[in-house]
Design a protein around this nucleic acid. Structure first.
Lengths: 217, 217
DNA sequence: ATTTAAATTTAGACACCTCTAAAAATTTAT
DNA sequence: ATAAATTTTTAGAGGTGTCTAAATTTAAAT
């Protein structure tokens, strides 16, 4: 597998509900910042390698083999992210770019030993689950803050948007994974929320609430 | 810099006495297991980028910029090797292949933080010196076991040949960096050596002695 | 149902890195 | 000093992954 092939597989996995749903050529092109014609070329190649199901004009999905491959790459990406944060003191908004490179390193032993060093983490720094060696993982029972009833109480366990901008915003406002959050009130006018986080009271926009996962306790 | 370019720079550095001496096209091709014509092409490109000095039929050497670049790559390679051995329990004969991949990861922050995590090591698992951030390093005062007078006593500090075969041989015979070695006797007939290593007496061939560095105490 | 718009694919091209085969330059040997 | 052998370079080509422009198919609109 070339680096480029791996990136396509990963993108199809993410866009197509873990590879199960058909993804359009244009969607892939946009996500990868390339041209649709390039996507068509690559998809043909991946199809020949039995990594994707492809019929002209019908979009692509991953085969079982493709899903397994994607899970391997995602496992590597997320383990490296944990490593960068836990061992090298990177902040959670700095890890993505480097992990994009590290995820392509080929060595089963390396990734297994890294897993051991990190003590078999189940989640990456953004709260996304890390597949185990066999590709199995489960997303803990989490919900978007915006979709939870008033008075709910829980722990902040993840972010949906893991862009640098959003993560830096959370840092600035002292919102971090592990924080205890209670929904105090929902402002119907602009769909914003008043929450209690730790001991503070905060007012957060709907956009923020729509990108924070909490696990109801 | 592409990965391929980096590999050429590294090879020219190693073959040409740290980049200072002219290296022949054929030598590079053989070392890199490619064809001389491919080397010529690449060397032209590196020349345009001011990384090497090149005149047709005259061989290549590194420019100052090329040397600096090579030292950066070597620093990364050797730091990763230390990481693999110290943190991930790789043995010293397993690290090279993986480090060959890791050395191409682009992130200054990553390598500086790795350096910190490892506590600024001066030598890699084979006893080779690790350049610092500015590219400066010095090889401690070491000598080949084969070139040291009888009765000399010192510490084993490195290997010249770091092939898997040689390293596994040393493991099998319980010879490791840090061991105290005394030359007991030189066998003139086959140029082999009788040595004391730790508390054991061993008989080692000239080929072994010619690939072990010791620091006389 | 036919036209219009959008999405997708094809065709042809280019940069990168490699190769083989042949030509040119250099070195070695007589 | 010239011929032979070796080294190095050039010329032409192939595979990968990308692009633009044009053609084709599908979806949307009237």
């Amino acid at each position: 597998m070339t680096r480029s092939e791996e990136n396509y597989i990963k993108t199809i996995f993410h866009l197509g509900n873990k590879g199960t749903e058909e993804v359009s050529t244009n969607a892939i092109a946009e996500e990868m910042e390339t041209k649709p014609s390039s996507v068509t070329d690559m998809v043909k190649k991946l199809s020949e390698k039995e990594l994707v199901n492809y019929k002209k004009y019908q979009g692509v999905s991953l085969t079982d083999f493709g899903i397994k491959t994607a899970l391997g790459i995602i496992r590597k990406h997320r383990l490296w992210e944990v490593f960068l944060v836990e061992k090298l003191d990177f902040s959670w908004d700095e890890v993505h770019e480097v992990a994009e490179q590290l995820e392509h390193i080929k060595s089963d032993k390396l990734i297994d030993k890294l897993d051991t060093l990190l003590n078999y983490p189940k989640y990456d720094p953004h709260g996304d689950p890390i597949p185990d060696k066999n590709g199995t993982f489960k997303q803990g029972n989490r919900k978007l803050l915006s979709e939870v009833p008033v008075e709910s109480k829980g722990i902040c366990v993840g972010v949906k948007d893991s862009s640098t901008a959003f993560l830096k915003f959370l840092d600035k406002n002292q919102i971090a994974l592990g924080d205890e959050i209670t929904i105090l009130e929902k402002e119907e006018f602009d769909s914003s929320f008043y929450i209690k986080i730790g001991d503070r009271r905060e007012h957060i926009s709907n956009q923020i609430a729509s990108n924070l996962y909490i696990k109801i306790s």
